[in-house]
C-alpha cells in the first residue's frame, strides 16, 4: 500500500496526523495519550476532539492535508463506524490511511482490514509500536 504523498517522499517534512474520537463515545484517555506520543515523535498532530462523524473527519482531513487519520473507539461500534470513516475519505477523493485504536476484538480485525483500515492498535501497545504503526501506515518508513 503506497500512499505516501509526493511532498513527503524526501522524508523531511513531519507527518501530519489527525486524531479524534468518532461516534458518541467520550472515552478519550487513550487518544490523548496517543496524541502526545506522536507529537513527542516529531509529528504534527491535529486533535479534533470528541464526537466526530465520518463526514467531519473527511472534511478536516482535506482541510488540514493530513497524512494519516487516527480514530479511537471504545463503544463496540467499530465494525460500523471504521468502514464509514474510510468510505467518507474515499468519497471525498482522499486516499488517507486510517488507523483504528481502542477495544477491537481480534476476531473483528480482518473485517476492518477488508474495509480498508490500514492498522489497528489495541490496548497495551508501546509508544514505539504506536509511532511505528502510524509511520508504516503513512508509507514513509520513518519520515517523521
Amino acid at each position: 500500500m503506497d500512499r505516501a504523498k509526493p511532498g513527503l517522499s524526501a522524508g523531511r517534512l513531519p507527518l501530519r496526523v489527525l486524531v479524534c474520537k468518532v461516534g458518541l463515545d467520550g472515552h478519550d484517555r487513550g487518544i490523548k495519550v496517543v496524541a502526545r506520543i506522536l507529537r513527542d515523535a516529531g509529528m504534527e498532530v491535529i486533535y479534533a476532539g470528541l464526537r466526530q462523524s465520518p463526514a467531519s473527519i473527511a472534511a478536516t482531513s482535506a482541510q488540514e492535508d493530513v497524512d494519516v487519520v487516527g480514530v479511537s473507539m471504545h463503544n463496540g461500534a467499530h465494525l460500523t463506524l471504521a468502514p464509514a470513516v474510510v468510505q467518507a475519505l474515499r468519497d471525498a477523493g482522499l486516499d488517507t490511511p486510517v488507523v483504528v485504536g481502542g477495544i477491537v476484538p481480534e476476531v473483528d480485525r480482518p473485517r476492518l482490514f477488508g474495509a480498508g483500515v490500514a492498522a489497528v492498535l489495541g490496548p497495551g501497545a508501546s509508544n514505539e509500536e504506536v509511532v511505528e504503526t502510524v509511520r508504516a501506515a503513512a508509507g514513509t518508513g520513518g519520515g517523521a
Binding site: 461516534g23 458518541l24 463515545d25 464526537r51 462523524s53 463503544n75 463496540g76 461500534a77 465494525l79 460500523t80 463506524l81 464509514a84
Partner: peptide, 11 residues
C-alpha cells in the same frame, strides 16, 4: 438519530 448509527444497544 444519524449519530446513533452502530451504537444502538451496543454498550
Amino acid at each position: 438519530d444519524p449519530l446513533a448509527l452502530g451504537e444502538v444497544g451496543r454498550a
